[in-house]
């Protein structure tokens, strides 16, 4: 290829990087705000939200760390998130796969059922759902996991079935001829091909489970086993009838988000342009 192509490419790259950096700065602004205010007292936050802290002290961070019982709450949150995610990925990948592969009216109906489930406002099912959970003796962590799995399925099936479509049948046929059974074929051949989307499913579901407030509140309430978000609401609640203890909220939100950032950084290496058609066809 000729030289002008590389020059053009370089200019294009420079433009892209400039734009990306500009947007990154814009996106980071509110985050910086959060970071900055995690080191400030209530008065400093109220008076000068944009200013740098008068003294850089970790006092508020450590206080928030204790106030939300971070290690314990993290344990519960991770437990709930991991269990729910395992169920979600397992169930929805299988379901999404088979309804894309088996083309029939019933597949379409099931697909649409799950899709439309995403449109139901939570308030519309809240009371009946809670009554059922209570009736089944599931107003506990186990019930919470089941509910998350149930609510998380729709989006995941939607995502999986969208992407299974882009994977050719060929491999599956070949595997069958080789005598693999359906689970072996799915988990060892098909599933690895959609790693990228599995990671997406994990991240998207993990995030709302991590940050969700209403479900754990209604099921776990003010019991000992509180999730991170619940601990934060509890700490806010006990700090006074009106007003917000920002000197607690900002550092607590910051602390709670760090594990998620770590997980995200770890998971995102699976976003690779891996699925080359060549590999599949052969």
């Amino acid at each position: 290829m000729d030289k002008s192509f590389f020059i053009k490419r370089k200019i294009a790259n420079a433009i892209i990087y400039t734009v990306l950096t500009a947007i990154a700065v814009y996106t980071l602004m509110p985050m910086l705000f959060l970071l900055l205010n995690s080191f400030k007292s209530q008065s400093e936050i109220i008076r000068n939200p944009l200013a740098f802290p008068e003294v850089w002290t970790t006092e508020y961070l450590t206080r928030a760390f204790d106030a939300i019982s971070f290690p314990r709450a993290l344990g519960y949150t991770v437990l709930i998130a991991v269990c729910s995610l395992v169920l979600i990925v397992l169930f929805s990948s299988l379901c999404g796969w088979v309804i894309t592969r088996y083309k029939s009216k019933i597949s379409t109906v099931i697909y649409l059922l799950f899709v439309s489930a995403m449109l139901i406002p939570f308030q519309a099912v809240m009371y009946p759902l809670m009554n059922m959970m209570d009736w089944a003796g599931l107003k506990n962590i186990f019930g919470l996991i089941i509910m998350y799995a149930g609510f998380g399925l729709s989006l995941s099936i939607f995502l999986y079935s969208g992407f299974f479509k882009t994977i050719p049948y060929g491999v599956e046929e070949a595997a069958l001829i080789d005598g693999a059974n359906i689970f072996r074929m799915f988990f060892f051949i098909v599933f690895p091909l959609v790693k990228g989307i599995t990671v997406t499913v994990l991240i998207l579901n993990g995030m709302w489970i991590w940050n969700d407030y209403l479900l754990p509140y209604l099921t776990l309430g003010t019991s000992e086993s509180k999730t991170l978000v619940l601990e934060l609401f509890y700490a806010k609640m006990t700090s006074g009838q009106f007003g917000n203890p920002w000197e607690l909220i900002f550092p607590a939100v910051l602390i709670s988000v760090i594990p998620m950032i770590i997980v995200f950084l770890f998971l995102q290496k699976y976003f690779v342009k891996g699925v080359s058609a060549g590999a599949i066809k052969s």
Binding site: L87, L90, N140, S225
Partner: peptide
């Protein structure tokens, strides 16, 4: 293989159930 998978399913459930049994109120 099928049995293996069934075992896997059950294991997940059992683990969840146990954990929630221990930690649940």
């Amino acid at each position: 293989k099928k049995i293996k998978l069934k075992a896997m399913f059950t294991a997940v459930f059992v683990v969840c159930a146990m954990l929630s049994g221990c930690l649940g109120n």
